[in-house]
């Protein structure tokens, strides 16, 4: 009986790859609270939820882009976060009434960056990695030039929203969870979602099946950039202002959560719950290594080793 059950379980786990990141999250959390003998277990979780939320926002966008198939990746996320954050802070000028202007400007930046990205990919026929890299240079420069020395606090409303909690659960996390559900449904049941999945499996077949390949890819790159700009706004709201380097860690993090979360790097298969699991895992891993007193060097090495380990295990099976 046992082996049969195990086989069934293993088969289920393979069809639901998000389970691994959640198991890993649980394991890391248990190890952490075992070390602290249960002290602060709740706080660690809440903090993880808050910080994971930001990673999830950009992770979802990156997930959609990666799902478009091999070679598709958005490297302009950090620059967009910084520029959108700076623009929102500067235009809002800490005034509630101007908040809408700031947010609209940030969203506008997202749309523009996404359009520019896909324009380069399409018109210059260059791989997305180079296109988004070139874009990121320019966006980053614009952010630096535009936001130099800004010390502007976010509008109180934005700050309140970004830090509010209901029954101990961050409001922002709830909103993003809702957004994740929308994206999950869109992937399974909307024309756009199905188109993205089809293009990721086989772009040529998708075109011949009558799918609007160009429009879908364009929309996906815009979506990713818009999500990055939203992340820039809420992140500055949360941390009391925009900083030029605040997007830097999200380049690697966004790709890492996509890979660890069970989205196929070969394209055509996306996984929303996995993004959450992986984002929580990444944060809790760092917390655990900190609790254990690991040096920054060890933390970096562990992160890299885990990313590589996951693609060695998961990526190989796809091929």
């Amino acid at each position: 009986m046992m082996p049969e059950q195990m086989i069934r379980w293993a088969r289920w786990a393979r069809s639901e790859p998000w389970i691994w990141s959640w198991l890993a999250t649980l394991g890391v959390w248990l190890a952490t609270i075992a070390f602290t003998q249960g002290r602060g277990s709740g706080e660690v979780l809440t903090a993880a939820l808050v910080f994971a939320t930001f990673t999830v926002i950009v992770g979802l966008g990156q997930m959609m882009v990666v799902t478009l198939g091999p070679g598709n990746v958005d490297l302009s996320i950090p620059g967009t976060i910084a520029l959108a954050g700076c623009a929102a802070m500067k235009l809002t000028d800490s005034e509630n009434p101007l908040l809408l202007v700031g947010i609209l400007a940030a969203l506008g930046i997202g749309v523009a960056v996404g359009m520019f990205n896909y324009g380069l990919i399409r018109l210059l026929r260059i791989p997305p990695i180079i296109a988004t890299l070139s874009t990121s240079f320019i966006v980053q420069s614009a952010a630096i030039a535009y936001g130099r020395g800004i010390r502007i606090k976010p509008a109180p409303m934005l700050a309140d929203f970004a830090t509010a909690r209901i029954l101990g659960v961050p409001v922002l996390a709830m909103v993003v969870a809702l957004g994740s559900i929308v994206i999950g449904i869109a992937l399974a049941r909307s024309r756009f979602g199905r188109s993205v999945l089809a293009i990721g499996q086989n772009m040529r077949a998708a075109r011949l099946a009558g799918i609007a390949v160009d429009r879908t890819r364009f929309a996906t790159y815009v979506l990713s950039a818009v999500l990055a700009s939203i992340c820039g706004v809420v992140l500055s709201g949360f941390s009391g202002g925009a900083a030029l380097d605040m997007g830097d860690e999200y380049l690697l993090a966004s790709i890492a959560v996509v890979v660890i979360g069970g989205t196929s790097v070969a394209g055509g298969k996306a996984n929303v719950p996995g993004i959450w699991g992986a984002a929580l895992f990444m944060y809790l891993l760092v917390t655990m290594l900190n609790t254990f007193g690991a040096s920054p060097g060890i933390r970096l090495i562990m992160t890299g080793v885990i990313i590589i380990g996951v693609i060695l295990v998961a990526g190989g099976e796809e091929q």
Binding site: Q201, N202, A205, A206, S264
Partner: peptide, 13 residues
């Protein structure tokens, strides 16, 4: 498509 694998089928579906 005649060349099913490259032009027709979505293998994960």
């Amino acid at each position: 498509a005649g060349d099913r694998q490259t032009d027709g089928v979505f293998p994960l579906w």
